[in-house]
Write a protein that binds this DNA or RNA. Sequence first.
RNA 1: GCCUUGGUGGCGGAAUUGGUAGACGCGCUGGAUUCAAAAUCCAGUGAUUUAAUUAUCGUGCGGGUUCGAUUCCCGCCCAAGGUACCA
Length: 943
Amino acid sequence: MKYNHQEIDQKWQKYWAENKTFEAKNNSEKPKFYALDMFPYPSGAGLHVGHPLGYIASDIYARYKRHTGFNVLHPMGYDSFGLPAEQYAIQTGTHPAITTAENLKRYREQLDKIGFSFDWDREVRTSDPDYYKHTQWIFIQLYNAWYNNDTDKAEHIDTLVEKFASEGNIYVNASSDDEIEEFTSNEWHAFDDAKQEEFLAKYRLTFLAETVVNWCPKLGTVLANDEIVNGVSERGGYPVERKKMMQWNMRISAYAERLLQGLNDIDWTDSLKETQKNWIGKSKGASVWFAIEGHGDLKFEIFTTRPDTIFGVSYMTLAPEHELVKQITTAECKDAVEAYISETSKRSERERMAEVDKVSGEFTGAYAIHPFSGEKIQIWIGDYVLASYGTGAVMAVPAHDGRDHAFAKKFGLNILQVIEPKQALEEGFDIQETSFDSKEGTIINSDFITGMEVKEAMAVVSNKMEEQGFGMAKINYRLRDAVFSRQRYWGEPFPVYYKNGLPQMIEKEHLPIILPEVEKYLPTETGEPPLGNATVWAWDTEANKVVENTEINNLTVFPLELNTMPGWAGSSWYFLRYMDSENKIDFVSKESQAYWGQVDLYIGGSEHATGHLLYSRFWNKFLKDMGFIDNEEPFKKLINQGMILGTSAFVYRINNTNTFVSKGLKHLHDVTQIHADVNMVINNELNVDAFKAWREEYNNAEFILEDGKYICGSEVEKMSKSKYNVVSPDIIVEDFGADALRLYEMFLGPLEQYKPWKTDGISGVYNFLKKLWKLYIKEDEFVVTDTEPTKEALKTLHKTIKKVKEDIEKFSFNTSVSTFMIAVNELTAQKCTSRAILEPLAVIVAPYAPHIAEELWSKLGYETSIIEAQFPEFNEEYLKESSHNYPIMFNGKKRFMLEFSADATKDEMEKVVREHEKTLAQLGGKAPKKVIVVPKKIINVVG
RNA sequence: GCCUUGGUGGCGGAAUUGGUAGACGCGCUGGAUUCAAAAUCCAGUGAUUUAAUUAUCGUGCGGGUUCGAUUCCCGCCCAAGGUACCA
């Protein structure tokens, strides 16, 4: 009987499904363990070899936890809303729900073939109305909440309304929009509903506001930065501009400090915490208001981290999008400023941040007044200042800030030194040539702070500004409120209708509001989102249901929101749903979430570091504030699996044409690099016909070939459907079995590391499985006996137990695979047949290669799953060595080996080494200066 | 640009706290078996040098600390991920 992976895989996958072997119970005498994977987006390309990497790791850990006595929750589901299905719908007219259902089916089949210990009864899908009704409900909770800085938590909006009614907003300490007009309780009562709502919106945790987006007029849609290449749309190559739009936003900034502090309480890698910390970007500094000459009371606010340099200000820079620019620009400067703004609107924010050497700007003709000195300061606009960061305005101190310096130099603006460096600078240092950005120094040329140290000056300036009413110390966060509207079809509809232009929430009992059918998935001709095409998309407030648009009367029937929610909406809370996925009423019951608590182990890609992982923490904290769940942080321990990278293929389109030029000739043209599907490329050569048939826009494409071939470029990058470089695990499972795939993915290298995919080494792990099999079954015979194990076999077994246990606990799965190989090689050489060795061996291998382990377990005579078996205990007795072979080194270089008994003392060993003839030969008879003996490691002779 | 991670043989990688660099696997070379091949088994395999012993070099590059550095420190180079509407 040979090792037949296909038969064994099927047999045990069927057994696990039928016996619900991996069902998690919501109560148990065993301790609980919650192991979670980041759920996949089910793309049309199917599961690729990168997906299972993390799933296999968490599966090994989850199975190990079961072997050590835990009640394990290990669920899986799908992040099933998203752009690709919608894109496909636009291209083919197929409803995204159909595409998604097909993709999902394929994913499930693929996942099933790998033998995961998932509890499939708890599966969730974000695009399922039974799921997204809760996403809609959470949205409503956020709408009906504000953040009270005094209690440092979110509260129901009613408590804010009470405050307004009793004392106005003057004493309210909330996270809110900047610069809210003050009102008294009397004024509040005098406001009409619309006015009251206008004020409440400035405090709500989700609110409508104007936000800048990448607008592509030709496609009539908003684009992700991802969809823009070289300033034009990736699809079609159309121009893109920055435009303001009314959008739903989430006030994540209210949680900035808690998101930052919470990092101290979770077991995540330092690099990931660092990334989130930098993303939140806390900085201490000051807010300063500058008056504008000739504009009466008009002032604008800047944020600076260096209030100590306020006397070094030589000009101001506003973001070109700053709201005041139009108002203050003088007639003479108008044309140039407008041209510059229009130019800037074509550049993406990322370009503006990246291209630091492209210094550009324009003088507005207006002057600010220095609050202390009263001097006139030129106001410029420059694209190095971003509207979305801080207040979109900076006070420029060229002597002490690199970017301000470059700007001042280019435009011949004054550079005034106000800090004297503490340490003498290199000779020839000239503040006119290079800025001095360090905070180590003494203030000069600065009125009342001259002579102070930087730190002291910062505080003094802040205090003085506060006294005089034009500034104060302030903490600023880089973290911006998150835009929550998408002009897309395939996402959660908002549970929102508009009455007199004001948003109204729909009651919980009428949820879900189901995504309507549309004829076309594109934006409407008037530029509205795809839901603008829906004909049944109005809310009847009497019947409490969605009705035909023709019934809209704005008295009882109102238009519904046309935007949908972003991809991260559904993924921000799915980990809670798994705890209680059958709950028909609430998103999770109090009891279920109390039992499962935090996710004990979360495995997923580091590319989610600042998106999903921050948004989930935000929603989790909010839900806790509102009393729905108990834990402040959702994910106790988190491991980033490194991505498996793909090899992408590129074609080169000559700009503004539909002609593609082969790689070797691309330097002769201005070209745009575009991804081609790797499945259309063999040995870098493009299958031109397949490419033409790939997309409608390429049907008539023309090609400039070299040597009769179209040669593609290639790059190693993320494996992703959008890069068309996806490789599927199916063939590997078919040819080598699920256990080989599992072992191989682990064997590739450390879990956390990025690695390009290659199939070359798979035969190694397959050979290992065959050798493992042969320890138990030779020819057709089951050869395991009850003979006493040898000392060597016990040593092999126990060092394997020790190493594998340590490896699993530190998520070093690649080294376990090597350890198994060594163990099997040794036991084979020892001709071991003892049950006392081979039975525990099957259990240690089981988390990694569960199918073969189950089969061997049943051959060993067991009738229940191997998952019931206890993980074997390590016994140190078997590993004791009577001697150790020491390398004898001279000045760090190994020269020969010497064996010493385990109980030899340091002095004894030193003596032997000193007197050894080879030592004398090495040193030419001279006595060693020193001998260093490190027990169980090395002996080093210093000559 | 900025933030994060990584760079070790032909390839994937190992090396627990600063202690024998290259475990394990792939590939390659030679051999056994076979009519032949597949499969399997055995031996070898960082580079230079040598018949061999040996010696020298060697963990992206340049410095430093140390008896001893893949590991710690300083300065660079290269690649990947993220950079706020891909998920």
